[in-house]
Design a protein around this nucleic acid. Structure first.
Lengths: 226, 226
DNA sequence: TAAATTTGTTAACATTTGCTTAACAAAGAC
DNA sequence: GTCTTTGTTAAGCAAATGTTAACAAATTTA
C-alpha cells in the first residue's frame, strides 16, 4: 500500500512530541491525524479508521490504556494496529498495554530513524489483514465486500448490474472488453438482453463517476482508463 | 467490579514489603489478606478464594513456586490470578521455566504507581472475561451477554433473532451480508423460513434504532453502516 | 396449568428500485 | 450521404424489498 493511503493517528498530550512525530511521518508521505488525549483519539479513530495508532500512555482526560481498550472493542478498528508510546522507565506499562490488545510499544525519547523503521515494520502487517476484496487503482477503490466504489474520496454505491459491470472493467484497466465479453461475464450465457442494455448501464456509471474514465472503442467495446 | 469486592492475597516473608503493599492497595479500596509463607498462603487462598495472589518466590516453609502449583491444583481457585514477586536480579527465565501456571510477575523493588497499574491491568481480566462481549461502534454499544444495545445512550433490548441479526451485521460494519449468509448464520442451515422473515426482522430493528444505519443493497443484501 | 405476554413466522399486499426496452438522436465509418 | 454503431431518454415491467396484520410458537406470569 502506498504511504499516501495509510492513515496514522498520533496521540500525545505534549504538542512538541506530536509536532515532532507529525513532521517526520509526513515527510514519508503518510496521512497524519492528531489527538491530544484519549477521548479525542477514540473519536478520531472511529471517524477515520486509521491503519496505525501511536498512543501515549500518560494523558489527561482519558489515558492511553483505556483508549486502547475502547478502540479494541470497535469492530471497525479490527485491523488497526495500536502501539503505545512509553517514557523510558515506565517499562511495566508495556505489559499492561499488551493486556488491552496493543500490538507494540515505542519508547521515548523518539529517534526519527528508529520511529520510521519501526512503523514500516508494523505496517507490513496490514497488507495481510486488509480486506482481500478491495481493489485500488489510482484514485479509485472498489470494495466487493461493501459493494462500494470510492472515487476521489467520495463513496458511491451502485446497483448490482452497474457494480458488476464497473468492477469487470476495472479488473483490468486499459483492457478493452467487447460487448460479448461483458454480456457473458455480467449477464451470463443463458440470458439474452437487447442491444442497448449495456449502453444504458455504461451511461449510468459514467453519470455517477462524473464521466471520463470509461472509454468507448467503437466497433470493439469499452475500457476503463484514467 | 468495584475494588471493595476484590480480594487480594499478599504473600511475602518480609513484613516490611507486606506492609508496604498492603498500605498502597488498601488505599485503592481492595480487600487485602496477608500471609508470610507458602503454607499460610494456600490455606488462606482456599478459605477466601481471592481474585489475585501476589506471591514472593523465596520464602521459608513453602516457597512461592510450590505454593503456586498447589493453588493451581485447587479447582476453587480456577479464576484466581497468581503473580510472582521477584527480586531484581533473579533469573526470570528460571521462573518462566517453572510452568506452574502463574499469570505474571512483578519485580522488586516495588514502586507504588507501577504496582497499582499492574494490578489494575491484571484485574481487568476478571472484568474482561465477564464482559469481553461488549462491542462499541460509534454511538452504538452492543452487549452480547445482556442482549442489549445502547444507542445514543438509550438502552434497547432486542429479542433473540433480532439481536443475532443486528450483531451479525455489526460484526463487520460496512460489509454486505447476503440473505443466504444471514439465513445460515442467524437461523442455521437446517431451518427453512420464508422469504419475508428477514425483512420483517430488519424492519423491527430499524424501528428500534430509528432507521438509517441498516442499509439495503438491492439484489445483494443488507449492511450496517453509519 | 392456564392465561397472558412476548417473540417468530407467514401471507397478502404495497412500494420501491433496478433492469430492460423502444424510439430516436448523435457520432463515426465507409 | 448512407450505413452502422453508440448515446440518450423516458416509460414499462419485473423483481426485490417493505409493510401490515394475523396467527403460531415460545416464554413468562399468575
Amino acid at each position: 500500500m502506498n504511504p499516501e493511503h495509510i492513515k496514522i493517528l498520533l496521540v500525545d498530550d505534549e504538542p512538541d512530541i506530536l509536532e515532532f512525530m507529525e513532521y517526520n511521518l509526513k515527510k514519508e508521505g503518510y496521512q497524519i491525524f492528531l489527538a491530544k488525549n484519549g477521548q479525542e483519539a477514540i473519536e478520531l479513530a472511529a471517524k477515520e479508521q486509521p491503519n496505525l495508532v501511536i498512543l501515549d500512555i500518560m494523558m489527561p482526560v482519558l489515558d492511553g490504556i483505556e483508549a486502547c481498550r475502547i478502540m479494541r472493542n470497535n469492530p471497525e478498528l479490527k485491523n488497526t494496529i495500536i502501539t503505545f508510546l512509553t517514557a523510558r522507565n515506565e517499562d511495566y506499562s508495556q505489559i499492561a498495554g499488551f493486556d488491552v490488545g496493543a500490538d507494540d510499544y515505542i519508547s521515548k525519547p523518539i529517534k526519527p530513524r528508529v520511529l520510521i523503521s519501526r512503523i514500516k515494520a508494523l505496517l507490513r502487517r496490514i497488507n495481510g489483514s486488509v480486506n482481500e476484496d478491495l481493489v485500488r487503482i489510482g484514485n479509485l477503490e472498489i470494495d466487493r465486500e461493501k459493494y462500494t466504489v470510492t472515487y476521489n474520496s467520495q463513496v458511491l454505491t451502485f446497483p448490482r448490474k452497474e457494480f458488476e459491470l464497473l468492477s469487470l472493467l476495472i479488473s483490468k484497466p486499459g483492457k478493452v472488453f467487447t460487448r460479448d465479453e461483458i454480456m457473458t461475464r455480467v449477464w451470463g450465457d443463458d440470458i439474452i438482453v437487447g442491444d442497448r442494455t449495456i449502453d444504458v448501464h455504461i451511461r449510468k456509471i459514467r453519470e455517477k463517476l462524473g464521466d471520463e474514465s470509461i472509454k468507448t472503442i467503437k466497433g470493439v467495446g469499452y475500457k476503463f482508463d484514467t
